[in-house]
Computed example of a mutant assay.
Amino acid sequence: MRLSWRVIWVVFGLVATIGVVAQPAAAHGQLAVSVPAKDSTVGAPMEKLELYFTEKPAYNAYFAVVSPSGRRLDGQWSHGEPKRLDEPVRELFLINGTWEPKLFETGFPAMVPVGYWPEQGVYTVKYVSRASDGELVKGEVRFSYDGKIGKAPAGWKAPDSEPDPALLVEPSAVPSPGVQPGAETQASQGPQLVQPTSLFSQPAPVAAEESSGSDGGFVVWLIPAVLVGGVLILLVSTARRPANKIR
């Protein structure tokens, strides 16, 4: 029985180690904060909503404000002035086979106008963009509205736009567009991932050097592989050990 508990503890340690070593990178360019905040309650009509990301949203990013009954209420979004975040956001970058955290203290907003507020209930703000390293940035913010109900302004036409197909294409499938005017050369920036530059209004800064070679993956999975081998050896040796005779 004692040996069985030893095996259980070894397996538990193996699972915990794999969870730490093989931890996936946090999505880059993620949503940091929004106004109104997620799951908050709004008591009066707002002319625009503000979504702050850890980097400037792609120029063709998609935003939609949807009422409780499913009506689109958003207008053409625009970039706003960056601001310092009350709480820094941590994102992870793979550097030489190790996940290294980096704190982002500045929020880059997307300002989304709201045409009118037709009903009370739960509203949803949907967004789709691409981070500077090519990762898909996608999600939604829900909040409740219990303020005054209004009618659609004269000439209002609900938008029916969909996300730009280029946003949904993986970076490897996007042809390399070349260096934009005024952009720094890759030689001066160091190694970086191939990214769909055409999705951005300006060259995106390199937040951290990421290792894309096979050595990084080998190091990341080396420790779990060794632990798995150790567990197998322990189990085999246990099976071969003769059972204790009852005196």
Rank of each mutant, 00 (worst) to 15 (best):
D39V: 01
I8D: 04
E210I: 04
G13W: 06
E47I: 06
P171I: 00
E140G: 02
Q76R: 12
L227T: 06
Q30C: 07
S214C: 02
A204N: 08
P242F: 15
V42Q: 10
T54I: 07
W9C: 01
P159Y: 13
L222F: 14
Y52D: 12
Y145Q: 00
L51H: 09
P45F: 13
F108W: 14
A22V: 06
L232M: 06
A110T: 02
W99A: 08
Q180P: 02
V122C: 10
P82H: 11
V33H: 07
H28P: 00
K157W: 07
P24A: 09
E184Y: 10
A131D: 05
A25S: 13
P45I: 09
K138D: 09
V7I: 10
D133I: 03
I95A: 07
I233Y: 05
V10S: 04
S188R: 15
G190A: 05
V65R: 07
I18A: 11
D146E: 04
F93T: 01
S67Q: 09
N244M: 12
V219L: 03
P177I: 11
G213E: 11
E209I: 14
T54D: 08
S69G: 03
L167H: 13
F108C: 03
I149L: 04
Q76P: 04
G216C: 00
G107D: 06
E210S: 02
V220M: 14
L14N: 00
V7N: 12
P118N: 08
V226G: 05
Y145P: 04
S176N: 05
V66H: 02
A26E: 10
L227S: 10
G80V: 12
P101T: 10
W5Q: 03
W99H: 12
W9I: 15
V33P: 00
M111T: 11
H79E: 06
V11K: 00
S78R: 12
L3P: 04
A37I: 01
R71G: 13
L193S: 08
L94D: 06
K245F: 15
E50W: 14
P177W: 02
L234S: 10
V35E: 10
